[in-house]
């Protein structure tokens, strides 16, 4: 048996508990159970650590059953365990299609953990404004920022659970609400995004002239309202540490 065949066979034992191919290659197969236990144990622990509030919302039985099904269906493919939790959101969505708050709670936890280790940035501050050449300077979102849309009140449930308060009952809104998730210094945050913000923020994933952003707002809200909106948003973004100035 080649090394490649042995490793494929060992993988089948870990992922599917199928030892038919690997056992004959071993001098003594009894220790295989240790590896199976380590493999599943580390993935279960990884999901539990990544989704503490989803776990609390579902309870041990529901969460662990969903985690076990996810591990059965999705072997890890990244060198870092930190990447493994991402796919669990889709598993939860498929498992509880009528309860969108479950997957959305997990989606929020996943994006907060992504923001936690996103690239460092130096956000634009009011002190920078006087120095900025607005004809050339472009703005972009900090690397940790992302815009999420929620059909449920998952952010309110998350906040209650994070503060060890009784969570509200799950509610599904008529229209989705947008939230911004980002990291300010080393603290991960989220807050609702206004309708105007939700419209323009996706365009700031890449550097963009502030003047172009104002033109978009003028097209949507009219030139008079656009000026006020742009100023309000820029002030809020600077206060939150949400945007970076890029000099072209």
């Amino acid at each position: 048996m080649s090394l490649a065949a042995q490793q494929a066979a060992f993988g089948a034992w870990l992922h599917r508990a199928d030892d038919t191919a690997i056992a004959p290659a071993l001098a003594d197969a009894r220790g295989l159970a240790v590896y199976q236990n380590n493999y599943r144990g580390s993935l279960m622990a990884c999901l539990a650590e990544a989704f503490p509030h989803t776990h609390a919302w579902l309870g041990d039985e529901g969460f662990e059953a969903a985690a076990a099904r996810h591990i059965d269906a999705h072997p890890p493919s990244s060198f870092t365990l930190d990447a493994y939790p991402k796919g669990f959101v889709a598993t939860l969505r498929a498992t509880w299609p009528a309860d969108p708050e479950v997957a959305e709670l997990a989606m929020l936890e996943w994006h907060l953990s992504e923001a936690f280790v996103a690239a460092d940035d130096r956000p634009l501050s009011p002190n920078d404004l006087a120095e900025l050449d607005w004809d050339r300077a472009q703005l972009r979102l900090v690397a940790s920022a992302r815009l999420l849309h929620f059909a449920s009140n998952a952010p309110a449930i998350w906040s209650a659970l994070a503060h060890e308060a009784d969570p509200p009952a799950a509610v599904v809104a008529e229209t989705p609400t947008a939230f911004i998730v980002w990291r300010a210094d080393f603290i991960c945050c989220f807050r609702p995004a206004s309708g105007a913000e939700a419209a323009v923020l996706p365009g700031l994933a890449e550097p963009r002239l502030f003047a172009e952003l104002c033109e978009d707002l003028a097209g949507e809200h009219g030139p008079d309202e656009a000026v006020g909106l742009a100023g309000e948003m820029l002030a809020r973004w600077m206060a939150d540490g949400l945007v970076v100035a890029v000099i072209g």
Partner: peptide, 9 residues
């Protein structure tokens, strides 16, 4: 790691 599978063990 083998053929895209990561064991984390």
């Amino acid at each position: 790691r083998f053929a895209g599978f990561q064991s984390h063990d």
